[in-house]
């Protein structure tokens, strides 16, 4: 298709500068995606403007970038008790979306990535980590039965995965407490950033008005780390700063409690040093 007139009009330059109104912008964007000659022309324009822009601007202080990163970190670590606002990976399902360039693969690949990443990074915990995720992966039936809940912000999920694979997270295994059976999970905790990620393994489903709640034991006191459900395979919990010596899970009324119901503690694990 001959876009000579369009090219001569200067509209591509304006598009490159972000100076078109929304409608024109969308129009051009769609055209660029379909016509490679037009795209090539735009690319050359954008490159020239980029070089020009760099030649007349000064690099701002790294301070601003650091503040942005701190803000990002702070916003990520703020997780609420309500299930809707916490980042979760529930189950796998091939997401059907037509958006090009999806960020993340389906959960199966995600779990594989995690297990690969962790296998590479962790040494002494290698066997247990592998077992954790092999166990999770083998629960195909349960996974398939659950619905996929993708957080609106895909980047949140991706960040969680990146954290797990980073090797900076300390793993605490939680097993069933006395008189309980079949409870098993792992808590991944980055002491520096306070980030906490929980990986559950086939926990018993609770009734409608109950939820699991994670606690960190800090200075001898239980600190709330958020609620979760049996269907949450992976979840970002509330950040925990300070020296947690153990993590525990109790069954609480839906929404969680201010203090743990000790008689309903089902899992506990000590944080190794």
């Amino acid at each position: 298709m001959d876009y000579k007139e369009l090219i001569e009009s200067g509209k591509l330059e304006l598009y490159a500068l972000g100076a078109l109104d929304l409608q024109d912008q969308k129009e051009i964007a769609d055209l660029l995606a379909t016509d490679k000659d037009l795209k090539a022309e735009y690319d050359a324009i954008a490159d020239a403007l980029g070089v020009y822009g760099q030649s007349v601007s000064e690099q701002p202080s790294m301070d601003i970038l650091e503040r942005a990163k701190a803000q990002i970190e702070a916003e990520e670590n703020t997780t609420e008790s309500t299930t809707t606002e916490t980042t979760r990976v529930v189950a796998m399902n091939a997401g059907n979306t037509t958006t090009p360039m999806k960020w993340w693969a389906v959960a199966a690949s995600v779990l594989l990535l995690i297990s690969v990443g962790l296998n590479v990074k962790l040494n002494s915990d290698l066997k247990e980590v592998t077992n954790d995720y092999v166990a999770l992966e083998s629960q195909n039936q349960q996974m398939a039965a659950n619905t996929v809940k993708f957080n609106e912000s895909n980047i949140q999920t991706n960040k969680m995965i990146a954290s797990l694979a980073s090797g900076k997270m300390h793993r605490t295994y939680m097993g069933s407490t006395e008189n309980n059976e079949g409870y098993e999970s792992a808590v991944y905790w980055d002491k520096e950033s306070s980030e906490v990620i929980l990986a559950t393994n086939n926990l018993p489903t609770l009734s409608e008005n109950e939820q699991y709640q994670l606690w960190a034991i800090v200075d001898g006191k239980p600190v709330d780390a958020g609620v979760f459900d049996a269907t949450d395979a992976l979840a970002t919990m509330k950040g925990i700063s300070g020296e947690a010596v153990a993590f525990a899970v109790t069954i609480e009324p839906k929404g969680g409690s201010v203090n743990p119901t000790m008689e309903k503690m089902v899992m506990i694990g000590n944080v190794s040093s």
């Binding site: 660029l32 995606a33 690319d43 490159d47």
Partner: peptide, 28 residues
């Protein structure tokens, strides 16, 4: 300007998955 730049960087972070390289370059 510094505050706005900081805010912009946070937005970029949050919306990175929405960037479509087939329709625009990073500059735009």
């Amino acid at each position: 300007a510094e505050d706005v730049l900081q805010e912009s960087l946070v937005k970029i972070w949050k919306n990175a998955s929405r960037f479509d390289a087939s329709k625009a370059k990073l500059l735009t």
